[in-house]
C-alpha cells in the first residue's frame, strides 16, 4: 500500500499542473477548478486498483477530471453568483496583441458555451488532443465531439471577429 501511495504521489505531481490548467480553462473559476482537481484526484486514488491498463492512466484521469468539472459547473449554476472569476490579468499575461476588449468578448462568448462544449474546446485547443482522442477520453461519439468543437470555435471566432469589425452606428429600431 505504501508503494501505491508513493507511486500515486509521483503521478499526482506529474499530472496536477496539466489537470489544473484544463480545469481552470473549462470552469473559468479558480475555486471551482481547485475543487474539480481535488475531487478527481481523490476519485483516482480510490479507483486506481480498478484501472486495468496503466497505459491509459492519462486518458482515464483526464476523463475523471472533465466529469468533476461537469459536476462543479452544475454546482456553480445552482449557486448563481458564488463565483470567483479568474482575473483578467492572468499569470501568463504579456501577450500584447490581446486587448482588454478581446478578453472581454471571449470571456462573454465562452460563458455562453455549455460545459460539455468547453471541455472539448479546451482539450482540443489547449491540450492539442485530436478529436478521436477527445471522444475516447470523454466517452462520446466522435461526431458529437466534432459538433461541440465546431460550435464552440465558431462562437468564439464570431465574438472576436465582431470585436474586430468596424463599428457602424445604427439608428434605433422601430
Amino acid at each position: 500500500m505504501r508503494g501505491d501511495r508513493e507511486a500515486f504521489g509521483l503521478l499526482v505531481n506529474a499530472t496536477s499542473d496539466r489537470m489544473y490548467a484544463i480545469a481552470t480553462r473549462i470552469l473559468r473559476d479558480a475555486d471551482l477548478a481547485e475543487d474539480a482537481l481535488q475531487s478527481s484526484l481523490i476519485t483516482a486514488w480510490r479507483e486506481l486498483p480498478r484501472l486495468r491498463d496503466p497505459d491509459r492512466f492519462e486518458a482515464w484521469i483526464r476523463r475523471l477530471l472533465v466529469h468533476a468539472c461537469y459536476a462543479e459547473a452544475r454546482r456553480r449554476r445552482q449557486w448563481a453568483g458564488n463565483v470567483r472569476v479568474l482575473p483578467v490579468d492572468g499569470p501568463a499575461a504579456g501577450d500584447d496583441m490581446l486587448s482588454v476588449a478581446d478578453r472581454d468578448a471571449l470571456d462573454r462568448a465562452f460563458r455562453r458555451l455549455t460545459v460539455e462544449q468547453r471541455a472539448v474546446f479546451v482539450l482540443h485547443h489547449h491540450i492539442g488532443l485530436p478529436l478521436v482522442e477527445i471522444a475516447d477520453t470523454l466517452g462520446i461519439p466522435a461526431g458529437t465531439a466534432r459538433s461541440r468543437l465546431h460550435y464552440a470555435t465558431r462562437l468564439l471566432r464570431e465574438a472576436i471577429e465582431a470585436d474586430l469589425a468596424p463599428v457602424i452606428p445604427q439608428g434605433r429600431m422601430a
Binding site: 500515486f8 499542473d17 481535488q38 501568463a92 490581446l98
Partner: peptide, 30 residues
C-alpha cells in the same frame, strides 16, 4: 487571439491542493 486568451489562465496547481490530495490518500481506502 483565442489561443493567446486560453494561455492567459493559470497552469500551475496550487501546492495546497496537491498536498491535500496526498494527505487524503493516507487515510482513504481504495
Amino acid at each position: 487571439l483565442i489561443r493567446a486568451w486560453l494561455d492567459l489562465m493559470p497552469s500551475e496547481a496550487p501546492d495546497r491542493v496537491v498536498s491535500d490530495v496526498l494527505q487524503a490518500a493516507e487515510t482513504t481506502p481504495q
